[in-house]
Design a protein around this nucleic acid. Structure first.
Lengths: 345, 345
DNA sequence: CCCACTCTTGACAACGTTGTCCAGGCTCTA
DNA sequence: TAGAGCCTGGACAACGTTGTCAAGAGTGGG
């Protein structure tokens, strides 16, 4: 009686177990296990009886118990910034596809760019004993993962290197892409070019800024301090930054936007009255080609990044011993028009 | 020796357990459990010793074992069509936020609109013993979930009702939205309006088609058979459909696009030379306001849909007994210009 | 006809955690 | 100072599964 109560309270629905199936089919526990896992060594007749019992009871194997016994969960974790960001959708999907090909499920969570939340999430995933982790870092100290790495949790970082630990990282050629994009503007006659990017604490943002600066310097162009704006990518801040660059005492004739969100805001500003400037943005986005002018971008392939990271992770899981490596993927300048506007005042 | 080997082979890294922590701290197993779970009844001194041992060994509780014992996983599953689709990003994120507020993790997977894959995923999630499921159906028979529902897995469907079982569903007013969008075109003088939608087997697609037809009928307008095209949303098919409607013997002067992917393709077609027509699309999309003409849409709030579904799910998990319910969320016509083009030939 | 072998089957322990329950030591009061 | 009561800590079983191992049934060859 007490036993019954406890079960009814604690557990949902009191699901049938292999024991129940075994009892109903009149076979041993292990035989049920064999059938459920498609192992050999069960006669057709026995298997049929077991299958019938499974059907009748609506049995479904409890993977928690299985995991406990086997030590592998066949699931991997993905910590990203924001699932709703169009950059991460394809990335996440690509990771999922690779995981699926390896028979693994994907558990993911958004850090909302908060380092504490990143850590909380990553550790929660480790507590679930995911086999591996793909992390898009929000923070810059990942020593909290040391025990996990030692315990064999395969870990690959994406978009930015890990801080304080030695781990794989897959990222785009941010510096080179930014350099190329800026050079594109210079090649079309621009000499006063503004840069609006994300907070410099973020690795990608810093790299992209560096690429812009190098391109300017290599072209012998000065960079007026009012031409560089780094900070959060909130539309209002970006809008103000863009407007002051376009109307200041040293007005720019072109803008380089440090990421997709900045680019979109920049497009909106430039669509406003009286603002004419060329534009190149980092990250491609849907419909960029249909705007007028169509927006020239430095495109990174987020699906490719996700795929690369996930494949690396499964190679590690497969047992291949690998040194921590930095894998840099190329980016591609897609010229569509907005970068070719002449710097006519 | 044999024991050691087995562990080293099967398990990753041989993580420390509470037993190891207990041994190192010189306390009992249960005391470690108490410290880890923040339970009372442990002196400050004992707690400190245990904490030190945890730090030193890099112990992290194994949630699989915990789940096995407790019967609840504090995780929910989300089965959607494609994480990379911009409609599902915000939805997924919203579900995640609600889950987070309830201390649960989100496991998600893409069905790729394949019913078999949907089932495979949903059942895999059930095997992990997720506490609840949010499903965007790809198939139309969900009786395979009956044992799970009986076992207490809270389940909420999104976007389309479940087939063959009695379950909650959260969806947009597809019929009404489509009716309103079509009526908007009619109000601006269009009499020959084409409809391009997804496969009619899909509930939302059928409802939207119905809305279009009703609006036409209520306005006393005939619907020429060549004006309706249903099928997959592959750009090439949509492009052909649109072009034949625009250039056929009964050319349309306006298009109603049944979902965001169709809308985008339609925009591309209309941007081509010689094609002039008004356009209203179902689903809003980023930058719709920056195109020329800006695209008028019937917008559904995917984040709101996700939030509503997840909240419903957690109310069920909280123990509130609820009848299966159909929750229909309103949609909103956002007039931006492309719907107001006059039907001038 | 018996032995050796194979094939099927089931008993049992273990995975790492938490709930139950009891023991021992302490404090406080009469 | 003895007894009652409280607080801390630990032994043990159980969660549902799988790996190990051994027993029993059946088969074929000598």
């Amino acid at each position: 009686m007490v036993e019954t109560n406890r079960r009814a309270e604690n557990r949902y629905g009191n699901r049938p177990t292999m024991k129940d199936v075994a009892a109903r089919a009149g076979v041993g526990l292990k035989t049920v296990s064999r059938v459920v896992n498609g192992e050999s060594g069960v006669t057709a007749d026995t298997e049929r009886r077991v299958q019938e019992a499974i059907e009748a009871l609506g049995f479904r194997r409890n993977d928690s118990a299985r995991v406990l016994r086997k030590g592998r969960t066949s699931s991997i974790g993905l910590v990203l910034e924001d699932l709703a960001d169009p950059f991460y959708g394809p990335l996440s999907r690509a990771v999922e596809e690779v995981a699926r090909a390896h028979g693994a499920l994907l558990i993911n969570g958004s850090s909302a760019e908060d380092p504490d939340r990143e850590q909380e999430l990553a550790l929660a995933l480790c507590a679930r004993r995911v086999d591996g982790l793909v992390i898009i870092p929000a923070g810059d100290d990942h020593r909290y993962l040391e025990p996990e790495l030692r315990a064999g949790v395969a870990t690959v970082f994406v978009d930015r290197p890990a801080g304080g630990i030695d781990a794989d990282v897959v990222l785009s050629d941010n510096y080179g892409g930014s350099y190329t994009g800026t050079a594109h503007l210079i090649a079309h006659g621009h000499r006063r070019i503004g840069f609006i990017g994300d907070q410099v604490g973020i690795h990608t943002a810093a790299e992209r800024l560096r690429g812009y600066q190098a391109a300017m310097e290599d072209a012998g162009l000065p960079v007026h301090e009012s031409w560089v704006s780094s900070g959060d990518t909130h539309p209002e801040r970006v809008r103000k930054a863009a407007e002051s660059m376009l109307t200041g005492s040293e007005p720019v004739t072109a803008l380089f936007a440090g990421n997709n969100r900045v680019t979109v805001t920049a497009v909106r500003v430039l669509a406003g009255p009286g603002h004419h400037a060329a534009l190149v943005g980092f990250d491609d986005f849907e419909l960029a080609d249909l705007l007028s002018p169509a927006v020239t971008v430095v495109a990174q392939d987020s699906a490719q990044i996700g795929r690369t990271a996930a494949e690396r992770l499964f190679r590690r899981l497969g047992g291949t011993p690998l040194e921590a490596e930095r894998i840099e993927l190329p980016v591609r300048l897609i010229a569509r028009g907005s970068g070719e506007l002449p710097p006519a005042g």
